[in-house]
């Protein structure tokens, strides 16, 4: 998860700073740089630039709050800065820095403007809102009350339930695994050719967060049935109602939960939702 070759040296430097006792200015700079290095290079999978920027903004704010919340610390930062800006002996260095900063800004603009074009970014809605009703095979369901008809067998008739799960397994390995993969991690044979990439059902943030009716909607209507805000409109998910019967869709949903050992979100649970 973390890139130890980066994180450990950063830690070592920070611990070293603790003993070296630099000035407050040096200390703040060191921490700011350390945070940036860890965020930008410290993760095995790089953190996207947007998040690095957001996090560094928050960290800068926190460091500023730290420094200025105490007159002593603030003085320790301010005095050398003021001295640097005013005293004659620093003048050559001041001129250098004063010129270097605009130069760096200009350079970054240059690189930004001459950088090779990147594919445009489309934000993706993770769980778009389902419609109120859903018509599959000419039967209209109320999404509020729709539930997997086989789910209740789990408790009442485990043997029959297992039969449905096995049927779902067959359906999955005849239809779904090309994209979603043998292990349901979204890494099927065609996954590398898809954008957005197929959903990873093993991720606890996907099917475990959802009611089975939601899956039923997504499976039966696929990419073409995404609502207006459910970007990015490139999903290759087929509308499986063209291929599977209603029973088969429910069975394959059973199998998804069974294989990944997740539980669906219960029906009628009023929740505060995520991200609040």
């Amino acid at each position: 998860m973390m890139n130890l070759a980066v994180v450990l040296p950063v830690l070592a430097v920070l611990i070293g700073i603790r003993f070296a006792k630099p000035s407050m200015l040096g200390w703040v700079t060191a921490w700011w740089l350390a945070a940036w290095v860890v965020l930008d290079f410290g993760f095995a999978v790089p953190v996207p630039k947007t998040v690095v920027k957001e996090f560094m903004g928050i960290i800068s704010l926190a460091l500023a709050a730290y420094v200025t919340s105490d007159p002593q610390r603030w003085r320790e930062v301010r005095e050398p800065t003021t001295a640097f800006l005013t005293e004659r002996k620093f003048l050559p260095l001041l001129v250098l820095v004063t010129l270097a900063i605009p130069a760096a800004v200009a350079a970054s603009i240059y690189f930004d403007m001459t950088a090779p074009a990147q594919a445009p970014i489309f934000g993706r809605t993770v769980h778009p809102a389902p419609p109120a009703t859903l018509t599959v095979h000419e039967v209209t369901h109320d999404m509020q009350t729709l539930d997997n008809p086989y789910r209740k067998l789990e408790a009442s008739d485990p043997a029959a339930f297992a039969v449905h799960v096995e049927a779902g397994r067959k359906i999955y390995y005849e239809n779904c695994f090309y994209c979603h993969g043998d292990l349901m991690q979204g890494g099927g044979m065609f996954a590398h050719a898809l954008n957005p990439i197929p959903t990873n059902f093993q991720d606890s943030g996907t099917i475990a967060m959802l009611q089975e009716s939601f899956l039923f909607w997504r499976v039966s209507k696929g990419g073409p049935g995404l609502p207006e805000e459910g970007g990015p409109w490139m999903s290759a998910m087929p509308a499986w109602e063209n291929f599977l019967t209603e029973e088969e869709i429910w069975e394959v949903i059973l199998f998804l939960y069974d294989f990944t050992e997740q539980r669906p979100r219960a029906l009628h649970v009023a929740s505060g939702g995520e991200g609040h």
Binding site: A44, V45, P48, K49, I121, R124, V126, G187, I197
Partner: peptide, 17 residues
């Protein structure tokens, strides 16, 4: 929010960590 390359590196729109 990530570029296509970043999304591919992350293997999805959410970061593994």
């Amino acid at each position: 929010l990530a570029t296509v390359d970043e999304v591919q590196a992350m293997g999805g729109s959410s970061h593994p960590a």
